[in-house]
Design a protein around this nucleic acid. Structure first.
Length: 557
RNA sequence: UGGGGUGUCGCCAAGUGGUAAGGCAACGGGUUUUGAUCCCGUCAUUCGCAGGUUCGAUCCCUGCCACCUCAGCCA
């Protein structure tokens, strides 16, 4: 994976655009990302964002950000703000001002009247339950509404009175007059307007009737000069309706809808309803909890914008709907972090080592580069008589499995520092090793031992007296099954109860000074990020982004 | 049992009449002051199934099967 990959390598949408451009069907490409502000964006939206913005960028066009805000009941400014942040964080810039479908309410209303005048729309008094009965089923045609043949004059009058607030919510709707017998349910006289006497976050109390998605989306596209309206597969059945409105209205454009398969990730849920439930039920700490597959959650977890975009490039875009292995996301993450994150040392399960041939007050600064390839500078680490290494890096007895580590009489390389040799150790009443005594081998800073007895392994360490206490939030996947959506019972039953563990660890002193959202690889431990909100010099807090890849062939034996 | 889609390696995904790209995963081997990284190698005689057309089909035709999707005054 390289930094030069475009967000839209080769996919069928890009090909269509390329052909449309070549054939002169469009002079330049204009796409749009149209979220409804009723929840936070998740990794599936990231795919759509990369596609829409990416393809516009690829062909020198533009991509609008348009809030599809036709259902004020569930929408709010909080979501609008969060969505803007997420898109910006991902590194995309929408063309011009932000658009709102609600900007077009006046025009939409005018077009609804136009349809009525053309005999293509009517006011229907059927209530929700009756409407359902008249709609028919998947295998049976629907029945015409008894209100279907009202005169144009009566429809105009009734619609005006709906707009004026004369009727209760649910009492009347405006429907397109298409075909109650269509095998496509969307064409069975779909509803265009419903009465909702509630405040809208953008238009205030101006309206008490609101257009729905089908009567809004295509016309909004046309008004904005969208050439390619890209959406997910479940809207495929809506395309005939999308086109019907475009054809029957004097709209200033001719947008075309194309559908692609939405992203499904294993061990993950990506439906606003379920994500909201996780938040509302307190399973996680909020929409931006590091365990959430929301963009805000991934950001807080330590994902970088580039890692998310690279992932979107990797999975491609097609019309088949599959389940992507979360290992691909993890690969994109590790790949970017490996290449770009500075290294540091942190001991999570400390075991004290006393280097007996050093003075009590020995203090020596050893220098270590932050990265082995990138020029990220270096830092000085205090090296003292007492140090901390990981408990797993010392064993009482040598074994094949443990051949590269520290055992009595054996040597180990302290990363970026000297080679030491274990001489003895102490255990507590429970039999745990609590202290190791060792000797430093002179002349081994940056050199192998003069006697030719080289250490087999390298361990990370920190000074026991000069280290910094830091809080580590250790995260695991939120679900215990690969397809929490498709299991029997409630998806909540498959929540991993141990997805968060908080521990205190010991790091080199420099880590207290880093800015929130700084990514690091704690050598031999994993990738961590200074928490976006809770990290401070006084109380450093790091989140486990993801562990290092492990060589399975060596974990056994 | 209606309509609309999709079926190419465990996962994602190119190819679409000339004899199966790539990535992830997995598995071998090498390098390494991170058991990371890096490097090298292995990994579909086969493209949902069955027929047909063709010198030749994953790609064209027919039938079948599986899965997804549509019956909100949600988007």
């Amino acid at each position: 994976m390289t930094d030069t990959t475009t967000s839209t390598a080769n996919n069928f949408i890009a090909k269509i655009i390329q052909e449309d451009l070549a054939a002169g069907r469009v002079s330049s490409v204009v796409t749009r990302f149209p979220p409804e502000p009723n929840g936070y964006l998740h990794v599936g939206h990231a795919k759509s964002i990369c596609l829409n913005f990416g393809v516009a960028e690829q062909f020198g066009g533009a991509c609008n950000l348009r809030f599809d805000d036709t259902n004020p009941e569930k929408e709010s400014q909080e979501y609008i703000d969060a969505i803007k942040d997420d898109i910006t964080w991902l590194g995309f810039q929408w063309a011009g001002e932000i658009h709102y479908a609600s900007n077009y309410f006046d025009q939409l209303h005018e077009w609804a009247v136009h349809l009525i005048k053309e005999g293509n729309a009517y006011v229907c008094d059927l209530n929700a339950e009756q409407a359902r009965e008249y709609r028919g089923t998947l295998t049976e045609p629907g029945t015409n509404s008894p209100y279907r043949e009202r005169s144009i004059e009566e429809n105009l009058d009734l619609f005006a009175r709906m707009k004026a607030g004369e009727f209760d919510e649910g009492a009347k709707v405006l429907r397109a007059k298409i075909d109650m017998a269509s095998p496509n349910m969307n064409l069975r006289d779909p509803i265009m307007y419903r009465i909702r006497k509630i405040h809208h976050h953008q238009t205030g109390d101006k309206w008490c009737i609101y257009p729905n998605y089908d009567f809004t989306h295509g016309q909004s596209d046309a008004l904005e000069g969208i050439t390619h309206s890209i959406c997910t597969l479940e809207f495929e059945d809506h395309r005939p309706l999308y086109e019907w409105f475009i054809e029957n209205l004097p709209v200033p454009g001719n947008p075309k809808q194309y559908e692609f398969g939405r992203l499904n990730l294993d061990y993950t849920v990506t439906s606003k309803r379920k994500l909201k439930a996780l938040v509302d039920d307190g399973v996680v700490a909020g929409w931006n909890d590091p365990r959430m597959p929301t963009i805000a959650g991934m950001r807080r977890r330590g994902f970088t914008p580039r890692s998310v975009r690279n992932f979107c490039d990797m999975i491609g875009v097609s019309r088949s709907d599959g389940m992507v292995d979360v290992a691909m996301l993890e690969h994109a993450l590790r790949d970017d972090l490996n290449k770009n994150a500075p290294r540091a040392m942190c001991v999570i399960n400390p075991l004290k080592v006393v280097i007996e041939n050093l003075d009590e007050d020995h203090l020596e600064m050893v220098s270590a580069d932050y990265h082995h390839e990138l020029d990220l500078g270096s830092r000085e680490m205090p090296f003292t008589r007492e140090i901390l290494i990981d408990q797993d890096d010392f064993k009482e007895e040598y074994s094949k499995k443990f051949k590269k580590k520290f055992t009595p009489g054996k040597r180990i390389r302290l990363r970026h520092s000297y080679v030491i040799e274990a001489t003895s150790y102490e255990k507590d009443e429970q039999g745990n090793v609590v202290l190791v005594r060792a000797n430093l081998i002179e002349g081994t800073l940056g050199e192998n031992p003069a006697d030719g007895v080289n250490p087999k392994g390298v361990v990370h360490w920190v000074s026991a007296t000069q280290c910094k206490d830091i809080e580590l939030r250790l995260y695991e996947r939120l679900f215990t099954t690969a397809a929490p959506d498709k299991c029997d019972g409630d998806f909540m039953d498959h929540v991993n109860k141990d997805s968060l563990k908080i521990v205190t660890a010991y790091s080199e002193p420099a880590l207290g000074q880093v800015a929130p959202e700084s990514n690091f690889q704690f050598e031999r431990e994993g990738y961590y990020v200074a928490d976006r909100y809770d990290h401070s010099a006084d109380k450093p807090v790091f989140n486990l982004t993801i562990g290092l890849r492990e060589d399975n062939s060596l974990t056994q034996g």
